[in-house]
Simulated assay, not measured.
Amino acid sequence: MTEIRTPRLLLRRWHDDDLAPMADIDADPRVMRWIDDGSVGELAGCTGLSVPEFLPQVLPAVAISWRFGPQFWGQGYASEAAHATLEFALQDRGLDRVISISQVGDDASENIMRKLGMEWESETAHPVHGRPLRVHAIDLTEFQA
């Protein structure tokens, strides 16, 4: 099982007992608004890689995304986890390119994308909900670990 450690976080595969704490995070409207000295061992949220099949115009692509409980906002956890996951994708898994998708207006997520070195690539709309989306991307040659 692959684990990624940062100075403050442990990124690991999903466990069955993560369901209840993640449900609490997902139930908070502040978290879901933008979604269709360290943690004390509780689940802070999730960060991961996926294929954004809901948006065919960006395929083939692998996207990085994150979602954290509001008690963890503003502390750099999302940036830290996203950077470690991006490094894993580009250096350990051999991907040449990674994208990230946000709703227009989700300035916090776009700030993280900029911190990762991602550049704005395109603007589109969610095919079901019609919400405006922005796609950011980074190539392996642009990534700085």
Rank of each mutant, 00 (worst) to 15 (best):
Pro52Asn: 08
Ser109Ala: 13
Arg13Glu: 15
Leu90Gly: 02
Phe54Gly: 02
Val135Ile: 15
His126Glu: 13
Ile4Tyr: 07
His126Pro: 12
Ile35Glu: 05
Pro29Glu: 14
Trp34Asp: 09
Ala23Trp: 02
Pro70Arg: 15
Ile35Ser: 05
Leu116Asp: 12
Arg93Ser: 03
Leu49Tyr: 05
Glu3Pro: 04
Leu10Gly: 10
Ser39Arg: 14
Ala108Phe: 02
Ile64Phe: 08
Ser122Lys: 10
Asp139Trp: 07
His126Cys: 11
Gly130Ala: 08
Glu123Gln: 14
Trp66Met: 02
His15Thr: 04
Gln71Trp: 13
Trp34Leu: 06
Ala125Val: 14
Gly94Trp: 01
Leu55Trp: 03
Ile64Leu: 15
Ala63Thr: 02
Met113Pro: 05
Pro127Leu: 10
Val62Met: 01
Trp14Ser: 08
Ser122Val: 09
Arg131Ala: 13
Asp28Asn: 11
Gly130Phe: 10
Met1Pro: 12
Pro29Ala: 12
Pro132Tyr: 06
Arg13His: 10
Val40Lys: 12
Trp66Arg: 04
Val58Gly: 09
Cys46Gln: 14
Ile64Asn: 06
Asp92Trp: 02
Asp92Met: 06
Glu80Val: 12
Val62Ser: 00
Ile99Leu: 04
His129Ala: 15
Ile112Ala: 01
Gln57Asp: 14
Arg13Asp: 14
Ala89Ser: 06
His83Lys: 11
Pro127Arg: 10
Val98Cys: 03
Asp37Thr: 14
Glu53Met: 06
Ala125Leu: 08
Leu55Cys: 02
Ala81Ile: 04
Glu53Trp: 09
Ala23Gln: 14
Leu86Ser: 04
Ala78Glu: 06
Asp96Ile: 00
Trp66Ile: 03
His129Arg: 13
Met22His: 12
His15Ala: 12
Leu19His: 09
Ala84Pro: 06
Phe54Gln: 11
Trp73Thr: 03
Arg33Pro: 07
Thr2Trp: 09
Gly38Glu: 11
Gly105Met: 04
Arg8Thr: 11
Asp17Ala: 14
Glu121Ser: 01
Gln103Asn: 07
Asp139His: 11
Arg30Pro: 01
Pro29Arg: 15
Val51Asn: 07
Asp139Arg: 14
Leu11Asp: 02
His129Trp: 12
Pro132Arg: 13
Ala137Arg: 08
Phe143Cys: 01
Val58Asn: 08
Arg93Tyr: 04
Ala63Lys: 02
Leu55Gln: 04
Ile99Ser: 00
Gln91Ala: 12
Gly105Arg: 07
Thr2Phe: 11
Val98Asp: 00
Ala145Cys: 10
Ala89Ile: 04
Phe54Ala: 07
Pro60Phe: 04
Tyr77His: 10
Val31Gln: 08
Val62Asn: 00
Pro60Gln: 08
Ser50Thr: 06
